[in-house]
Design a protein around this nucleic acid. Structure first.
Length: 705
DNA sequence: CATTTATAAATTTTT
DNA sequence: TTTATAAATG
């Protein structure tokens, strides 16, 4: 008899299940769990991706139709990787119709299809947090809040406050008090801005990231259509559950109100997104929120050597609150992680580069090594050094190309064609024209969007106030503009007309828009050559998109994650090093990991030491970084920081090793570098004067830090 | 009055 | 390198 019972499931003789034997018992239990709901607690390196990929393959082999499986991940890249692994088991093509992506991108997809039943027009435009901030800024000036004598919070702060309040479903005043205390004086103005902001979004057919979740939640709990949407999926799988927020948990509850088939996977020790209102409670409360839920724990680490795991576990052992878990590995290994003390950042740069090159000599390719850091700019100086030494690299996290002003300009132009009611884009585009600033832009927008007295009573159509769309009004009734702007506005109108007539392909619309934009671009920016490449990339991306709407949604929801910032010529098959923020490194692993700036003030970040909870999150961040390493882990720590950024000034301050690695834990590491004993008082730089000064300054620093 | 130009200041992590 | 505010210009 060839068929056999595996975790309660009958297997036919024709199905190849050899791949299942590669899983350990817990992984197999998770991958073949009959229905759900089930929570998988997956420690770092415990084969979480493999398990999820196997579950997908298993479901397909069970006969679940691909388009009835929903796989929610943290990034689109993660979804693609998982589906790729699944298709290696099931054969190519089988995973193609699976719904895979982030909560936000799936929301976008569902709302285009079902949004109408919620009163949401399907041609809405998705705006990112930067756009949201810009819109709030616009409203802030309109309301005259900039002229008040008290300083009003910056637009970025406003957007962060708003988003956190929405996602945690907490009152603005409460969020302000706890996380943005300096804004408390302006609360009245802030709530006013938020009120107008929501009105304006609706009127302009804009959805921000938070709206995508809120509307999906509304869709999932709606009486009629909610059933239809929930019934679309036989199985729902969620990765990185520790980094979801309460709205996302409610979405899942709505989506699973009649069916139990759901699996969520996460690790509370790797929760690092509470600034986005993610909450560990989702994991802890899962059994209550989804009655009858089973819990499976994956505790065997397949990634790291024992010494690396020991050091990482020591960091987490000092956490105030954690979910008990016994992570173990069968991988031996004798080399401890190395903790290198450097005199200053320059020495850190050369230490890292030297080590990377010597690892490469040992046979560890650049692509199997990574440099990780807390914030995007921590790698600035290192990037210069890498380029100087001709070490090619690819950087993840930090500034993205969609955030560059010239890219935003181009996108605003495209958006107008797609959604003429998008006031934010109108403002941006109009101010590109010579002689038009905020005031003229506002006047023109009012005129063409119909809120001006120009709106005749709209006869029959009682409930549609805007009969004529602003774009056509802009083209048919040219608004009065200052003399200086005449020429620019004429060329803008010509460009827009060309893009509308005959509905040409997306790429040629972009090309036409670029032809309009380039002269303005050259006038606006000093060194156009570097930025010009970005415009090329935009055209490149557009050429692969079937529609304008898709082009815009893709860029808003899944912006290119890395800078094209290769030190050498960007050859695809070339060996290159990975540079990444710790946040962006989530889910990845490398043979050798180099973690830089492991000092107090960087980890934990000075900006995150406000509350106990924030410090604990920084601790988990360090843990996540350390557990990315398979065979070798290097921590670097510069003693001295120059106060004046890249100035030649001598003023500097002294840092201490991160508080998460106290002296009692130093035995987990191999110590090396300029200072052999303690980071602050040792000799050995060959310059007694410097050392003495270092010791004195550090002593003083202790008194008031 | 609106816009442009000049000057000074600030800068987490991301869908 | 971007962004807020102040002074100068059209």
């Amino acid at each position: 008899m060839l068929s056999e019972r595996v975790a309660g499931v009958e297997w036919g003789p024709s199905v190849d299940r050899s791949w299942l034997s590669e899983l350990n018992p817990q992984q197999r239990e998770a991958a073949t769990y009959p229905d759900g709901p089930v929570l998988v607690i997956a420690g770092a390196g415990s084969g979480k991706t493999k398990t999820l990929a196997c579950r997908v393959a298993w479901l397909l082999q069970q006969g679940v139709p691909a388009d009835r499986i929903l796989l929610l991940t943290f990034t689109r890249r993660a979804a693609a990787e998982m589906l790729d692994r699944a298709s290696r088991i099931t054969g190519p093509g089988a995973t193609g119709r699976i719904w895979g992506g982030t909560f936000h991108s799936i929301a976008n997809r569902l709302l285009r299809q079902y949004g109408r039943s919620l009163g949401l027009a399907p041609e809405f435009t998705v705006i990112d947090q930067g756009d949201a901030a810009d819109l709030m800024d616009l409203i802030r000036t309109e309301l005259g809040l900039t002229e008040s004598r008290k300083r009003f919070p910056q637009k970025g702060t406003l957007a962060a406050l708003y988003s956190r309040s929405v996602n945690s479903r907490t009152k603005v005043s409460e969020v302000a008090r706890r996380h943005f205390p300096w804004t408390e004086d302006s609360l009245e103005g802030i709530t006013q801005v938020f009120r107008v902001y929501t009105e304006r979004k609706r009127r302009s057919l804009l959805l921000d990231y938070d709206d995508l979740l809120l509307f999906w939640r509304a869709l999932a709990i709606a009486p009629g259509v909610g059933d239809e949407v929930a019934d679309r999926f036989d199985h729902i799988l969620v990765d990185e559950y520790q980094d979801t927020n309460s709205i996302q948990a409610e979405i899942l509850q709505g989506m699973r109100r009649t069916r139990p088939q759901m699996m969520v996977v996460g690790d509370d020790a790797q929760s690092i997104y509470s600034f986005r209102a993610a909450t560990v409670r989702n994991i802890l409360d899962f059994p209550q929120q989804f009655p009858g839920a089973a819990v499976v724990k994956l505790e065997q680490n397949y990634r790291s050597t024992q010494p690396i795991l020991d050091a990482s576990n020591a960091v987490m052992a000092r956490a105030t609150e954690r979910y008990e878990k016994n992570l173990f590995t069968l991988r031996g290994g004798v080399s401890k992680p190395v903790l290198t003390t450097c005199l200053d950042e320059g020495e850190q740069c050369s230490a890292v580069c030297d080590r990377i090159l010597s690892k490469r000599e040992e046979g560890i390719a650049l692509r199997d090594q990574a440099i990780l850091f807390r914030t995007g700019h921590h790698s600035d100086q290192l990037e210069v050094e890498l380029s100087r030494r001709n070490i090619p690299f690819l950087k993840f996290g930090g500034l993205k190309f969609v955030e560059a002003a010239h890219v935003k300009d181009m996108l605003a132009l495209v958006r107008l064609l797609d959604n003429p009611r998008d006031e934010l884009s109108w403002h941006r585009v109009l101010q590109l024209l010579e002689g038009i600033g905020p005031a003229s832009a506002r006047r023109i927008v009012a005129q063409i969007s119909g809120s001006a007295p120009a709106t005749e009573e709209s006869e029959g159509e009682a409930d549609t106030v805007e009969v004529v769309d602003p774009l056509h009004r802009f083209l048919s009734q040219p608004p009065a503009v200052p003399a200086a702007a005449q020429e620019d506005i004429a060329s803008l109108r010509a460009a827009l007309t060309d893009c509308l007539e005959g509905d040409p392909p997306v790429a040629s619309q972009i090309e036409r828009i670029r032809r309009f934009y380039e002269p303005i671009f050259r006038r606006l920016y000093e060194n156009p050559s570097v930025r010009l490449r970005d415009l090329d990339s935009l055209e490149q991306i557009a050429s692969g998109c079937p529609s304008r709407a898709q082009f815009l949604s893709d860029l808003a929801l899944d912006p290119p994650a890395s800078t094209q910032d290769l030190a050498g010529p960007p050859l695809l098959d070339e060996d290159y090093l990975i540079l990444s923020t710790i946040h962006s490194s989530k889910g990845s692993e490398w043979d050798a990991v180099h973690l830089i700036h492991v000092s107090d003030g960087n980890i934990p970040s000075d900006l995150a030491t406000g509350s106990e909870a924030e410090i604990e999150e920084e601790r988990r961040l360090l843990y996540v970084a350390m557990t990315r390493a398979r065979d070798a882990l290097y921590l670097y720590f510069p003693l001295r920081y120059y106060n004046r950024p890249r100035g030649r000034g001598d003023r500097h301050s002294y840092a201490q090793l991160t508080r998460f690695i106290p002296p009692e834990d130093w035995h987990y590491y191999e110590r090396e570098g300029s200072h052999q004993s303690t980071p602050v008082d040792a000799a050995g730089t060959g310059d007694p004067k410097t050392d003495a000064a270092a010791a004195v300054d550090a002593l003083l620093g202790d008194l008031w830090s």
